[in-house]
């Protein structure tokens, strides 16, 4: 949360809606994991998605990116309905990273990013075997673009390293580079700073600003409230699969229901700590009452 970061956060997003999710509902048998959630992401905006563990954030991501077929509701990207198929979603311009890093472990960093270019290239088996002009052109473009993206996320020196051998923070960056390789209009980042130290977390928020500055919209799931409130233009809080609050970081931060949701429902210490860290600037009264509520129940 540097001064420059705060400045660039303010008012750079337009009000042109890019992603519109309307009434997305996901049921697994009798369990409703996501219930009637609507979300709009504007162009060039950074939107934060928060909520206690099990609130349905990742499930909602999976519905958006087509890994799950939502029971109800629809997702539109730039005014076009998205079919619930991962390939179609990526082609339409929405890429994602995973909560548990899912890189291609035995491929090099460069190859990982080159796989990201798959959906934007079209050389078939025949031109690959014949080394046709199209193949050579595309292969060269793919390689250059992948190298550019590695430089962009700060991994320009690790090109030939196997993904599995890279340090944790670099693996997260590599995953972001791979997502960017699909030429997205919108990137969904699922807990990009989980398990990172403060230095790495700050580098991650710098990277997110950098991505936004290239004209992309970003949606971030995070538990680190300091990070979320420092980075996002707007924040959406999910609780038990439903939208609790949506608004600017300041509004969400000061909303007593958010604090209650975290402290009142969280079962493990970790979540409570994180909520506290985020809500640290809040009035002591609100925090106290929430804590009291938790004790009463």
């Amino acid at each position: 949360m540097t001064a420059t970061a705060a400045a660039s956060t303010a008012g750079s997003s337009t009000n042109v809606p890019l992603l519109q999710a309307d009434g997305v509902t996901m049921r697994f048998g009798g369990l409703t994991a996501v219930n009637n959630v609507s979300m709009t992401v504007n162009e060039g905006e950074i939107l934060g998605l928060i909520g206690p563990n099990g609130a349905g954030k990742t499930t909602f991501f999976n519905c958006l990116t087509g890994l799950y077929k939502p029971t109800e509701g629809q997702v539109r990207l730039a005014g076009v309905d998205l079919p619930p198929k991962p390939r179609a979603v990526v082609r339409a311009g929405m890429a994602r990273t995973f909560q548990n890093i899912r890189l291609f472990a035995n491929m090099t960093a460069l190859e990982n990013v080159m796989v990201g270019r798959y959906c934007r290239t079209s050389s078939g088996a025949l031109t690959s075997i014949l080394h046709g002009p199209k193949f050579r052109r595309e292969e060269k473009e793919t390689r250059t673009r992948a190298q550019e993206l590695l430089d962009f996320v700060g991994l320009g020196d690790s090109t030939e390293h196997l993904a599995r051998n890279m340090p944790y923070g670099n693996q997260r960056r590599l995953e972001i580079a791979r997502a960017l390789a699909t030429d997205p209009k919108l990137v969904l980042l699922d807990e990009p700073t989980a398990g990172m130290n403060p230095l790495e977390t700050r580098q991650a928020s710098d990277l997110i600003f950098k991505i936004r500055d290239t004209g992309l919209a970003v949606v971030v799931i995070e538990h680190d409230m300091r990070f979320i409130f420092g980075v996002c233009d707007r924040v959406l809080c999910l609780v038990r699969g439903e939208t609790l609050v949506e608004g600017t970081p300041e509004e969400v931060q000061s909303d007593p229901r958010v604090i209650e949701a975290y402290i009142g429902t969280a079962t493990d210490e970790d979540d409570a700590d994180k909520a506290e860290a985020g809500a640290g600037h809040n009035s002591d009264a609100g925090k106290g009452s929430a804590a009291n509520d938790a004790e009463d129940s």
Partner: peptide, 29 residues
């Protein structure tokens, strides 16, 4: 045929599938 496919976009797609099918799918393979 083997070598050229292996070092092409197709070959990378195959290796990606072998490594992590879900992730490959999410990357548009």
């Amino acid at each position: 045929v083997f070598h050229r496919l292996n070092t092409s976009r197709i070959g990378r797609g195959w290796v990606a599938i072998r490594e992590d099918e879900k992730a490959a799918e999410a990357m548009g393979v």
